[in-house]
């Protein structure tokens, strides 16, 4: 039996019953149970990690392919299009709040806890009785000098390069968008490949940075609050870039497969929004993590 839309174009598209969500959950849960077991050195559950991961990936692929088909076969009206726009916006908002937690931690450490440990503000006794002689500077790995001496990555080096890369990629994807709207599919695809390439190179440099940090600079997750905030923020950003690049890649393939129309192509725009979000987060990182 088809969906209501098959009977009345005006009706909102309500998908037929689907096993994807349930299987996606199963995959995810297998994955996290596996990881949890691994963290606690359990014998059994780590075996679940890869099956779970694969299941999740496969389902995500099937799900998105299904959505793409529904969209291409014109089952979505304007209203569904608005749904996706709202949905994506709110999703990105939730992502912003997620990063907010880690930025909050960074500001708290720099603005409150380190100064307190260093004897500034309301907590003089803390400094005098527990951490005499510690003076609060940034970067810091705390009064116990956790993880030993370390050096930081200068902002106006590779990070600057990465900033330029991401900004450029923001530009190229916009160009691609214009091309798509102007119906110049070929041009659009070229700009998209450029964007994908930029995303990939960002990741390459980021990886280099990490290796450099761990091997030459002795800057690790264990380097006190600096290492913690540095890797947590840049790390989660990196994951988002990875995801974004993948999404750009898929969109590019879809463009080559003839998907999207000049007037309706939210799949494309959604990814573009996401990419811009990743871009903006990086600017924040560049300023408060690398530069200041």
């Amino acid at each position: 039996m088809g969906s209501p839309a098959a009977h009345n174009a005006q009706r909102y598209f309500v998908p037929a019953p689907s096993a994807w969500p349930f299987m996606l959950t199963a995959g995810l849960v297998a994955l996290v149970v596996g990881v949890a077991g691994y963290l606690e050195h359990s014998q059994l559950t780590p075996a679940l990690i890869w099956p779970g991961f694969l299941l999740a990936i496969v389902i995500i692929f099937l799900w998105f392919r299904g959505v793409a088909r529904e969209s291409e076969t014109g089952q979505y009206g304007a209203q569904v299009d608005r749904t996706y726009r709202w949905g994506m916006s709110w999703f990105i908002f939730s992502e912003v709040m997620f990063f907010g937690a880690f930025f909050g931690a960074l500001f708290y450490a720099r603005g409150l806890s380190l100064p307190w440990l260093g004897g500034e503000g309301a907590k003089l006794a803390t400094h005098v009785t527990l951490w005499p002689g510690f003076e609060s500077v940034w970067p810091s790995n705390g009064p116990a000098n956790l993880g030993g001496e370390f050096k930081t990555i200068p902002a106006f080096d590779v990070p600057l390069l990465n900033t330029i890369i991401l900004l450029t990629s923001g530009f190229t994807i916009t160009m691609a968008h214009h091309a798509l709207k102007a119906g110049k599919r070929g041009v659009c695809i070229l700009w998209m490949w450029a964007t994908v390439a930029l995303g990939a190179s960002f990741l390459y440099f980021q990886a280099e940075e990490y290796i450099h940090a761990y091997h030459e600079l002795n800057l690790t997750l264990g380097s006190g609050i600096y290492g913690s905030t540095f890797f947590m923020l840049t790390g989660f950003h990196g994951m988002h870039v990875t995801l974004g690049t993948l999404m750009l890649f898929v969109i590019t393939l879809r463009l080559m497969a003839g998907h999207f129309k000049p007037e309706s192509h939210f799949g494309f725009e959604g990814v573009a929004w996401y990419w811009h979000f990743v871009d903006v987060v990086w600017l924040g990182l560049f300023v408060v993590v690398y530069w200041l």
Binding site: A105, A109, S113, P143, L221
Partner: peptide
């Protein structure tokens, strides 16, 4: 985010919530 920091504090040597590392 908060519980993720707990996780890394326990298993990955971060010190968000440890004074000796500059956390709180």
């Amino acid at each position: 985010g908060a519980v993720t920091m707990l996780l890394t504090d326990k298993y990955f040597h971060t010190s968000f919530f440890t004074a000796s590392g500059g956390g709180d």
